[in-house]
């Protein structure tokens, strides 16, 4: 893949990730976890895909763009720390888990989802300056099992269908 194509693909994926983070804001997570700024982490689908398909550096770039533009569009600087801490925790854990080579894409994305939610709780802890948000950690971890499986499933389906295409010509 040429570098131009790579950049274009990264941009498309970043746009897709932004769309996901916008869409998941419609999910009424606040009913269960009344911490504004905490998100399900559906945008992690893009992170998982990018990590496997383009490698860690491109995935990091996409993540950074998604977080910055997301905060810009939302006009909310305090949301930035949530998405940054969530996104980067997820990325780091997924890179490490993937290096282990024994886990499938499901395991990796579940670990990423859990780390994503831990990172967001950390962001809430930092923002509020006290330990109150820790009370939502158990429920968010259980939620991450579902969202992690979902992102893993979507990424797996994606790769399976892409296996029929000649990758080298993208």
């Amino acid at each position: 893949m040429t570098s131009t194509r790579r950049i274009a693909l990264c941009a498309v994926l970043a746009a897709l990730a932004l769309t996901f983070s916008y869409l998941e804001s419609f999910f009424p997570l606040a009913l269960f976890v009344p911490l504004p700024g905490v998100k399900l982490g559906l945008a992690n689908i893009v992170t998982v895909f990018a990590l496997y398909f383009l490698g860690a550096s491109s995935a990091l770039a996409i993540l950074l763009v998604r977080c910055l533009l997301g905060a810009l569009f939302a006009g909310n600087a305090s949301a930035l720390i949530f998405s940054l801490l969530g996104g980067f925790s997820a990325m780091l854990v997924m890179i490490l888990l993937r290096r282990c080579r024994i886990f499938s894409i499901f395991g990796v994305s579940i670990g990423g989802a859990a780390a994503h939610n831990c990172g967001q709780i950390l962001a809430a802890l930092l923002t509020l300056g006290n330990a109150a948000p820790l009370a939502y950690l158990p429920v968010l971890l259980l939620v991450s099992l579902l969202t992690g499986s979902l992102t893993g499933l979507i990424a797996a389906l994606l790769f399976r269908s892409m296996a029929h295409f000649p990758m080298d010509h993208i």
């Binding site: 499938s104 894409i105 395991g107 579940i110 670990g111 971890l141 099992l145 797996a156 790769f159 399976r160």
Partner: peptide, 17 residues
């Protein structure tokens, strides 16, 4: 790339639980 869930994944699920 492993596209099917395997036994090792259960380790991660167990860790999260």
């Amino acid at each position: 790339v492993k596209l099917k869930p395997n036994a090792a994944d259960l380790l991660i699920v167990a860790a999260v639980l």
